[in-house]
Computed example of a mutant assay.
Amino acid sequence: MLLTLLQAKLHRVRVTQADLDYEGSCGIDEGLLDASGLRVNQYIELYNVSNGERFSTYIIKAPRGSGAISLNGAAARKAMVGDLLIICAYSQYTEAEAERHEPVVVLVDERNQPRRAQVKGAA
C-alpha cells in the first residue's frame, strides 16, 4: 500500500504577481525550490491564507533571489498580489518509507526569501 504524505511546504509566501493571460501555473523563486526540494512541473496545492481559496496547479521556475510567487492563468483568479499562500506538495510513500519520512517546511521572510528550512519533527 502507498500512503500520500506531505513532501514539502512553503509557509506563508506572499503573491508577487497574478497574470490571467498566461497559460497557467505558479512561478516560484528557484531558491525556494532548492530549499524545499520542489521541482519544476510538479503538482502543487495552494491554500490562500488571505481569502480561504484552495486550488492546484504546477510549478514553473522564477529567477533565483527574485522572491517571485506568480499565479498565472486561471490560478490568478484565486489570489491577489500581496495575499499569503501556503504551497504544498504531496508524494506517495511505501509504509516503510512513511515510517521515516519527514516533510520539509520552508519559512520565509517578508521578501519571500528562505528564512529557515526544516525537516518537520527534527530538532
Rank of each mutant, 00 (worst) to 15 (best):
L2F: 14
N51D: 07
L2P: 03
V49S: 07
N112T: 03
V119W: 10
G52A: 09
Q118I: 15
D29K: 08
A18C: 12
G121N: 05
L32N: 13
V13H: 07
S56D: 12
L6P: 02
R100A: 02
L84S: 07
P114Q: 11
G65C: 03
G121V: 03
R64L: 08
Y22D: 13
V81Q: 05
G24A: 14
K9H: 07
S70E: 12
R14Y: 08
H101L: 01
A117C: 04
Y58H: 15
M80H: 09
V40Y: 08
Q42V: 10
E97I: 02
Q92I: 01
Y90P: 00
A18E: 03
S66D: 00
N112S: 00
L20W: 04
E97A: 01
R116G: 06
E102M: 08
R115N: 07
L33G: 10
Y47N: 05
R111C: 05
R100L: 03
A122M: 08
R14C: 09
V105I: 11
H11K: 01
I28V: 14
A62W: 01
V105P: 00
R111K: 13
L33F: 00
A122G: 02
E45D: 15
D29W: 04
R54V: 05
N41L: 14
Q92L: 02
L6F: 02
A35P: 14
V106N: 04
T57N: 12
P63H: 09
D29G: 06
G67T: 03
E99C: 02
Q113E: 13
L10F: 05
S25G: 13
R77K: 15
D21Q: 14
L3T: 09
E23T: 15
G27N: 08
S66C: 00
V105L: 12
R12Y: 09
G27W: 05
A74N: 11
H11L: 05
E30S: 11
A35V: 09
V40E: 15
H101W: 01
H101D: 02
S56I: 07
S91M: 12
N41Y: 14
N51M: 03
Y43P: 15
A89Y: 06
Q118A: 11
A96P: 00
